[in-house]
Amino acid sequence: MRWRFLACCGMGLLCPLAAAAQTAPGFTLPGLMADLAQVRGASASYTETKSLPLLTTSLQSSGTLDYRAPDYVRKTTTAPAPQNFVLQNGIVTLTLNGQTQHFTLAQAPQLAGLVEGVRATLAGDLPALRLYYNLSLSGGPEHWQLLLHPRDPALAKMMAWMSITGTGDKITEIDSADAKGGETKMQVRETTQNAP
């Protein structure tokens, strides 16, 4: 169902378009992906700011993020209201207002696109990213920005673009915009990382 496919918009991806259109010499997308693929797991705290055309003010939230290679992602919101988003083995479990819902990525291709944008970047899974998005990378190893544009028009109706900013193999910001002018910015501060 349509509203479900959207369910993940909030995965929190947000962001600004920093727009360096060029990459530093020797800094390539496959190279960055290979670096990211080395990361076996990471934990972070985040703050998210959402601005929607529907509202006169923006909404703030914060919580923690956990990632374990290659396909476990958890986003736990602690403020203003508790909620939990878990992606594991292709199944999304969302706990909100005391209710738990499950979605299977296989049954909802558009939801899969949204979730895969973040998951595949974390895992350095270039083929998976390219399945859903046109990619452009800018900056250098110390400060890079990966821009994702949906290839599937159905996905594009839900998300205009997503931008992932990072330093080395750490992600610092995930921003996204929906087609109706809503924008989400998520600042990520990595707390621990377990490299191999």
Partner: peptide
């Protein structure tokens, strides 16, 4: 709107 279902 503030939740992960905000987009929907």
């Amino acid at each position: 709107l503030g939740s992960d279902l905000g987009g929907v």
